[in-house]
């Protein structure tokens, strides 16, 4: 095992081990409990409802906050004790972050490159590439205070990639991005994921469908399941039904079944139902999407004995 003094910047991390990590904010308020997970190269998507503990886990991985229990090993070194082992290789986009409004995007990125210890010359080249890649070159010299939410988010993505990180942690990265920019971001993540660890948390399931090689389902601070998107979808097969119901029957259907989505049609409402058996003889079995698979997994977890 490496010791703190042996840590070198080696380009790529092959392994992050999360061991029984828990986070308690108040005496009885656990945001995260007993999360154990091993991460290698590729994109792992964290999926879960609001308040599930995704951001707490990301903050712990990014060394912003310390776990109450457990530890995180980065190539065998405990990053909760030696945070620099992670920080040296980390690119982090928090869910909420600020900028210095009077600086331009270029100046802000230069500042953060200096803070991250990127040498000045390579930093300049990197900044230009990132501005271009994130379609910010035209606004690069305007004060950040005048940026729209989407532009600011792209600056956040750029700063996370400044140091060519071997570990990229991005929390709700596509918030505020328009559909075209979101697509561009997915390309970027796919490009990057070949030789680094990418941890991506989002509510937008299609972002994960497009990029994630593994998905971790988190709810109420606990890790429900970790699997490939394909396996998750396979597990939901036979539990997803399309059912056409009259408009006035919808409230009752909602009460009796778990609804994944509804679609208004000229002859009624097409309801996608998550159920073990067909909710009606008229219902038709469908292939599961990742969103369906997520709802199935949540339902199974809720039904499982504590």
């Amino acid at each position: 095992m490496l010791r703190a003094g042996d840590i070198r910047y080696r380009g790529h991390i092959v392994r992050i081990e999360i061991e029984s990590v828990g986070k308690r904010y108040r005496a009885d308020a656990w945001a995260l409990r007993e999360v154990t997970l091993t991460l290698g190269t590729g994109v792992i998507g964290l999926l879960g409802p609001n308040g599930a503990g995704k951001s707490s886990l990301m903050n712990i991985l990014a060394t912003i906050t310390r776990p109450t229990t457990g530890r995180v090993l980065v190539d065998g070194v405990d990053s909760t004790r030696t945070p620099d082992v992670m920080r040296r290789v980390l690119g982090y986009l928090p869910q909420d972050f600020g900028v210095y409004p009077s600086l331009s995007a270029r100046e802000f990125l230069r500042y953060l490159a200096a803070v991250k210890g990127v040498p000045a010359k390579p930093a300049e080249r990197r900044i230009e590439e990132l501005l271009d890649l994130l379609n910010l070159t035209h606004a690069a010299d305007r004060p950040l205070g005048g940026y729209s939410g989407g532009m600011r988010q792209r600056v956040g993505i750029a700063q996370a990639l400044l140091n060519d990180p071997a570990v990229l942690i991005v929390d709700e990265p596509t918030v505020g991005l328009d559909p075209e920019e979101r697509l561009r971001f997915r390309h970027l993540i796919t490009d990057l994921s070949g030789d680094r660890v990418v941890i991506l948390s989002t509510h937008i399931v299609s972002d994960l469908e497009a990029t994630a090689s593994r998905i971790a389902l988190i709810e109420q601070g606990r890790l429900l399941r970790v699997d490939t998107p394909e396996a998750l979808m396979q597990g939901a097969e036979g539990r997803v039904w399309d059912w056409l119901v009259p408009v006035d029957a919808l409230p009752e259907v909602r009460q009796r079944h778990r609804i994944a989505s509804t679609l208004r049609r000229s002859d009624g409402i097409q309801v996608r139902v998550i159920a073990e058996r067909a909710p009606s003889p008229d219902a038709v079995a469908r292939s599961a999407s990742l969103e369906d698979a997520y709802l199935v997994a949540k339902g199974l977890a809720a039904a499982a004995p504590a």
Binding site: G117, P122, L133, N135, N163, E181
Partner: peptide, 21 residues
């Protein structure tokens, strides 16, 4: 606001230690 530039791949940074400067 211009059209997005063509897709490009980022040039890797030289593998130097991110030391204190």
């Amino acid at each position: 606001t211009p059209e997005a530039s063509p897709w490009r791949t980022l040039t890797p940074l030289p593998r130097t230690d991110p030391g204190w400067r």
